[in-house]
Simulated assay, not measured.
Amino acid sequence: MQHSVRSVSLTPQSSGGGRGVPRQDRSAPPRRSSRHTADGSSGDNAPARGRRSRSEPPGGFFSVEDPPPFEAPPGIAEITGWELAAALWREHLPEQLLGVDCASCKQAWPCDAWEIADDLINQCCESAQLAAKQAAADAG
């Protein structure tokens, strides 16, 4: 059995191992900045997202005291999406004692998972309202 032999150049300009694979940078990845700084702004260029208190209404349609139902209300088109978002919304509520961190993932509340669920629920509600208005306009 014969093996083909490939010539390898080990000059500084070569890719490292001669296998055509670029040399990996073994330095540590840059450290991520904190999600929130002392002045309330986020560490990156994203808009600042401050912590909400338990008394402040977290979303547009539901609150911690009045969470979304597990089953999609009438008029909601995305039933499975609603059910998944409602379960995630309820799972990622603020902890009972201080109410500043998520009881499930321990991130600053509102955590990313809760915000995604809240956004999806709000979009479902807005779509249902828009569909109801459109149906009323078509009927009238």
Rank of each mutant, 00 (worst) to 15 (best):
Q2I: 15
H3M: 12
V5G: 04
S7A: 14
V8R: 11
V8H: 06
P12C: 06
P12D: 11
Q13T: 14
Q13W: 12
S15N: 06
S15G: 08
G16E: 12
G18K: 04
R19Q: 11
R19A: 13
G20M: 08
G20R: 04
P22R: 01
Q24Y: 05
Q24M: 10
D25K: 10
R26Y: 04
S27M: 07
S27R: 15
A28S: 13
P29N: 14
P30Y: 07
P30T: 14
R31Q: 09
R31V: 10
R31A: 09
R32N: 01
S33E: 14
S33F: 01
A38V: 12
A38C: 04
D39K: 03
D39E: 11
S42L: 05
D44I: 03
N45V: 05
A46D: 09
P47S: 08
A48E: 10
R52T: 06
R52G: 00
R52I: 06
S53F: 08
S53Q: 11
S53A: 13
R54W: 02
E56N: 00
P58S: 05
G59V: 03
G60T: 14
F61W: 14
F62C: 03
F62Q: 03
V64W: 03
V64E: 02
E65L: 11
E65C: 06
D66F: 07
D66S: 12
P67F: 00
P67K: 06
P68R: 02
P68K: 02
F70V: 08
A72I: 03
A72Q: 04
P73K: 05
P74H: 11
P74G: 03
P74F: 09
I76D: 00
A77N: 10
A77P: 05
T80G: 02
W82Y: 07
W82A: 00
W82P: 00
A85G: 01
A86Q: 04
A86C: 07
A86K: 01
L88K: 09
R90P: 01
E95D: 15
L97E: 15
G99Q: 06
G99T: 02
C102K: 02
C102V: 04
A103W: 00
A103G: 12
C105D: 12
C105K: 13
C105I: 07
Q107T: 07
Q107N: 10
W109P: 00
P110M: 01
C111T: 05
C111N: 02
D112C: 06
D112M: 10
A113E: 07
W114S: 00
W114V: 03
E115T: 14
I116P: 00
I116F: 08
I116R: 13
I121N: 00
I121H: 03
N122T: 11
N122R: 15
N122K: 11
N122S: 11
Q123F: 09
C124N: 07
C125N: 05
C125V: 10
E126F: 14
E126G: 04
E126T: 13
S127D: 10
A128V: 02
L130S: 09
A132R: 15
K133V: 07
Q134P: 01
Q134W: 13
Q134N: 15
A135P: 08
A135Y: 07
A135G: 12
A136G: 10
A137H: 09
A137S: 13
A137Y: 12
D138P: 00
A139E: 15
G140L: 13
